[in-house]
Simulated scan of single mutants.
Amino acid sequence: MDPIYEKGQGAAVALAEAATVRPARSGDLDAILAIRNDAIENSTALWTDTLQTPAEGAAWLAAFLDKGAAFVAEHAGEIVGFGVYAPWRTLEGFRHSAENSVYVRTDRHGLGVGSALLDVLITSARAAGYHVMIADIESGNAASIRLHERFGFQDVGTVREVGIKFGRWLDLTIMRLAL
Rank of each mutant, 00 (worst) to 15 (best):
M1Y: 02
Y5I: 05
G8S: 05
Q9R: 14
G10H: 09
G10E: 10
A11N: 06
A19M: 06
R22H: 08
R22P: 04
R25M: 12
G27A: 15
G27Q: 14
D28C: 12
D30K: 10
A31I: 08
I32A: 03
I32S: 01
I32F: 00
L33D: 02
A34L: 10
A34C: 06
N37G: 12
A39D: 13
I40K: 03
S43L: 06
T44Q: 01
A45N: 10
L46P: 02
W47P: 06
T50V: 14
E56V: 07
G57V: 13
A58I: 07
W60D: 00
W60A: 04
L61E: 02
D66L: 12
K67T: 08
A69N: 03
A69C: 11
F71C: 05
V72I: 13
A73S: 08
A73Y: 05
H75Q: 15
E78Q: 15
I79E: 04
V80G: 04
G81W: 03
F82S: 04
G83D: 09
G83K: 02
W88E: 08
T90K: 09
T90E: 15
E92Y: 11
G93C: 08
F94M: 08
R95F: 09
H96S: 11
H96N: 05
H96A: 14
S97H: 03
A98S: 11
A98W: 04
E99W: 03
S101T: 15
S101V: 10
V102G: 05
Y103C: 10
Y103W: 03
D107M: 07
R108H: 15
R108P: 00
H109V: 13
G112T: 06
G112R: 05
G112F: 04
L118A: 07
L118Q: 14
T123V: 14
T123G: 15
R126I: 06
A127I: 04
A127H: 09
A127D: 14
Y130G: 02
Y130E: 06
H131E: 09
M133K: 01
M133W: 01
I134F: 06
A135L: 09
A135T: 09
A135W: 04
D136G: 12
I137H: 00
I137E: 02
S139R: 01
G140H: 04
A142W: 00
E149G: 14
E149C: 09
E149S: 15
F151E: 10
F151H: 14
G152D: 12
F153M: 13
Q154R: 14
Q154W: 00
D155G: 10
G157P: 12
T158I: 15
V162S: 00
K165N: 09
R168T: 13
R168K: 14
W169R: 13
W169P: 00
L170Y: 07
L170M: 04
D171M: 07
D171Q: 02
L172V: 09
T173E: 00
T173G: 02
M175L: 15
L177V: 08
